[in-house]
Design a protein around this nucleic acid. Structure first.
Lengths: 246, 246
DNA sequence: GGACCAAATAAGTATGACTTTTGAGTCACG
DNA sequence: CGTGACTCAAAAGTCATACTTATTTGGTCC
């Protein structure tokens, strides 16, 4: 019974560098907490975790330290490792976002993220219109056209790639490092939307057109139009959610 | 360089529990990286850090793990702990934000955060108008009036308290957990503005009025007005920055 | 000159001993 | 009978050391 974990999540790590005991513990404990499997107030003892994962204190402690830095748990002497209430969690931590998107909290998480997105992206587009380099403008146009090309005939995978790339460029071109960092979040939302069969049919042609218009506006340095069209895109995304789960 | 000043920042740590060797290492290494003192590409070896901080391997490793989870460093075998480029950092991590606000990157950080704020808060206000409880409406009014009362006569400290509380309530009342989490960020920005003598004079009376109007709009469930007035507030904040450091 | 193998190196893991904090139980005293 | 202080033990925190594993480097052989 070496690696015969009783409730192992499985060796299918999709991208979260899952080699090493440390990562294994982290990638098990993190989701367990964010999924509500270990509800707030739950107390974990270090030696109990040692046995459960069959690793040394070193590994457990390092994993706990990381969870602590995400405000998922609090470690106190004579008490143990306590799971903190959800409102304390660092919900902006990409790792936490991924865990929650993979858990039962997914719908709520997608809503939050979409709302965040629709307030950020228009502003980012306006800034992008002012700061985008010619190369970035070219990329935008390229991906907008790519979206047009893949918008019909069940080419959702290809469409998604261009969609994500498009929004990534916008966020990066804004020149604001914090906006740029949200590229991963937007990618997660868009991917989630496709996966979650919200878009099992071809994308809304109007949305496709809007992307083309945004690319135009940015190229022409028209911040106002870039912002307005982007807002239409994100408002559409919000409406989509409301229709699906009011 | 020994750490002759372990906590010259002040002993009043509001949230960063600074006791223990682990925290000491983290609170020294983190700022050293985010400040550019250890530029990207710098390689730190574990045993070197052990000697430098006079702590055991355990402590160094735990600190490094946390820095790694923030994407500030990358630890590789046979190489060491490498400082990662700034664009990889988790700039949304509250800890990273605090470190950068305390370092030479502060102006840039304040700009980013203010831009973030001005795109988020209007949306939050609109949502707050829909979701705010009567208690939250009362709080809003209270703090808006508090701002009015402290807006004259060099009562900046009191004004700041109400200002922060006001925006915190807006963000929390939005019902979006991610918006709510930005309360600390907004607090940091507002505090930074006051500290940084951007507001060494009494606050703009117009801004004060706008806060009162936002409170009114939320109370009357008028999302559109709440959003518009909030946008005026944050646009004003942006303009303030542009005037100070164009 | 290129491919392949071996040694050196530094992170990663395991373990046992010891320290510090702190919750809880206990006992004396009002 | 209640309240305060005192003691004890449980669990995290720290340290030192030995050992493992991966990776780079460099040298050798074809």
């Amino acid at each position: 019974m070496d690696n015969q974990g009783p409730d192992n999540q499985g060796p299918d790590d999709q991208g979260s560098k899952g080699r090493g005991p440390h990562a294994r513990v982290l990638q098990t404990l993190g989701p367990a907490i964010t999924s509500g499997d270990c509800p707030p107030g739950t107390v974990l003892r270090t030696d109990e975790l040692e046995q459960r994962f069959e690793v040394s204190r070193t590994v457990v402690r390092e994993a706990v330290r990381v969870l602590e830095s995400m405000h998922l748990v609090e470690s106190r002497r004579r008490v143990g490792v306590t799971v903190r209430p959800a409102e304390d969690w660092d919900v902006f931590d990409p790792q936490v976002i991924r865990w929650r998107l993979a858990g039962p909290d997914r719908p709520r998480q997608l809503r939050s993220l979409t709302a965040l997105r629709s307030s950020i992206e228009p502003a980012a587009a306006a800034l992008a219109a002012e700061h985008a380099t010619p190369e970035q403008c070219a990329e935008l146009t390229e991906h907008a056209l790519g979206m047009v090309a893949t918008s019909r005939g069940q080419q959702l995978a290809g469409y998604l790639v261009h969609d994500i790339a498009f929004h990534r460029v916008i966020l990066r071109a804004s020149g604001n490092e914090m906006f740029a960092r949200l590229g991963d979040v937007v990618a997660a939302v868009l991917t989630g939307r496709t996966e979650h069969e919200v878009m099992f049919t071809d994308p809304d042609p109007e949305a496709v057109t809007l992307h083309v218009r945004v690319a135009e506006a940015v190229r022409e340095r028209d911040a106002e139009r870039a912002e307005a069209y982007t807002r239409e895109i994100t408002v559409g995304a919000l409406r989509e959610l409301d229709i699906l789960a009011p």
